[in-house]
């Protein structure tokens, strides 16, 4: 009987021990201290365009023949429009659990968001 209880109690203890073994106490600030986010003179062609291509302006989302919400982010004029009306900054800054967050697959990284915000702050130029 006692043996049986040791077995049932032992299972979770083993599991905790196993998972503690895989436990890390990391944070992005200390794990990547040398990652500088350079947001001076952000370039549309060099920085914003690749971000949009990778995360937003493909077929099925804001690209392709039927872009979502009739918003084709392959076009600079459309990107400029959402940059000026505040939607761009607003939608990428929602919480992960917010259904309005863009991109829906998951929040952009802090440096990516900072870069977009800096570009909008610098006038959202086609530079």
């Amino acid at each position: 009987m006692i043996k049986k209880y040791f077995f049932w109690m032992g299972l979770p203890i083993l599991l905790i021990a196993f998972s503690l073994n895989g436990c890390y106490y990391d944070n992005v600030e200390e794990l990547y201290p040398n990652t500088n986010c350079d947001t001076t003179d952000v370039s549309y062609a060099q920085q914003i365009r690749p971000l949009l291509d990778q995360n937003c302006s493909f077929s099925g989302c804001h690209g392709g023949p039927n872009p979502a919400a009739f918003l084709d982010l392959n076009e600079y004029s459309e990107v400029k429009k959402i940059a000026d009306n505040g939607q761009f900054e607003s939608r990428i800054n929602r919480e992960v659990s917010d259904p309005q967050l863009m991109p829906p697959a998951g929040k952009l990284g802090p440096c990516q968001i900072e870069t977009i915000e800096a570009w909008i702050g610098q006038g959202a130029l086609e530079n």
Binding site: L11, I16, S19, Y24, Y32, A105, G106, C111
Partner: peptide, 29 residues
């Protein structure tokens, strides 16, 4: 007792830096 292990499957926010698989993991007991 309930224990769960969760693996975040999102793309790395910065693929250029050295990313670790363990960074994707979280646990609940």
């Amino acid at each position: 007792w309930y224990s769960g292990m969760y693996i975040n499957g999102l793309r790395w926010e910065d693929p250029e830096r050295e990313n670790y698989f363990t960074s994707r993991l979280s646990y609940a007991h």
